[in-house]
Simulated assay, not measured.
Amino acid sequence: MNPAPPDLSPLALLLQADIVVQAVMAVLALASLACWAIILEKTVVLRRLAREARALAAQARVRPDGAAPAGEGLAAVTLRAGHAEWREGRDHAETAGEFRDRLERAMRGAVTQELRQAEPGLPLLATIGSVSPFIGLFGTVWGIMHSFSGIAAQQDTSLATVAPGIAEALFATAIGLVAAIPATIAYNRYATRLSRIRQEALAAAGAIAGRLARRPALVAGGRAAAE
């Protein structure tokens, strides 16, 4: 009677693996869960920022009315920063170009501050994408070494003896790739998208600064000064 074939299902491979390989698999499983949690969070955040960047760009095509917008978000915070500088007015020794640069610097700072809130989590995605394959490879090497030790102890090189240990080792590599591939793709995609949002928002801030600078502003002493 032929012996029953070894159980090579994922659950069986996990339960039968060496304790070190099990630890490697657990670390990679946690990394994969963290990766998907970051992906879901960044999808929502970047979608919101892209919408607000478009709203800011739309404001660049509208004549400013001097009113500081209420609320939070990229567009509102950036516009408030620009209007706050504009209401302070131009200094006597300040040229129109310098006044515009001051307005733009204030809005660029607000844009940078708002977009910085979307950056946490991206370094972890990059780390998971670059490190997970090596962690999985470590588990594979350890599993193969453990399998060879078992072969030497049993003095049996049949496929039924070798297959479970090799399968356990390769399963660690597979889990490492499952964690690394989505993390790498997500990091590249989100980093590119965040860069595009930043460029759009900064361009809109520059355009708004130019429009505000062309409006009559108060000089430092409170007198109106036309450009």
Rank of each mutant, 00 (worst) to 15 (best):
T95V: 00
G109M: 11
G136Y: 05
Q117L: 13
G129W: 03
H83W: 09
R108W: 12
G89P: 11
T112M: 05
F138T: 07
R87Y: 05
E88V: 08
G82P: 01
P120M: 06
G139C: 01
V111L: 06
R116K: 11
Q113P: 00
R105F: 05
A81T: 09
V111D: 05
T140S: 08
R108Y: 07
F99N: 09
S130A: 14
G109L: 12
A126N: 12
G129T: 01
R108M: 10
S130E: 03
R90V: 13
S130R: 03
L103E: 03
M107C: 04
L124F: 12
H92Q: 11
G89E: 11
E114V: 08
R80A: 11
T140N: 06
A81P: 08
F134P: 10
G89L: 10
S132M: 01
E94L: 12
I128K: 05
R105Y: 05
V131S: 14
E114H: 04
P123T: 05
G121A: 07
E88Q: 15
R100V: 03
R80D: 06
G129Q: 03
L137T: 08
F99H: 15
P133L: 06
Q113G: 06
I128L: 07
D101I: 03
I135Y: 00
L122P: 00
F99W: 13
H83V: 04
L79G: 07
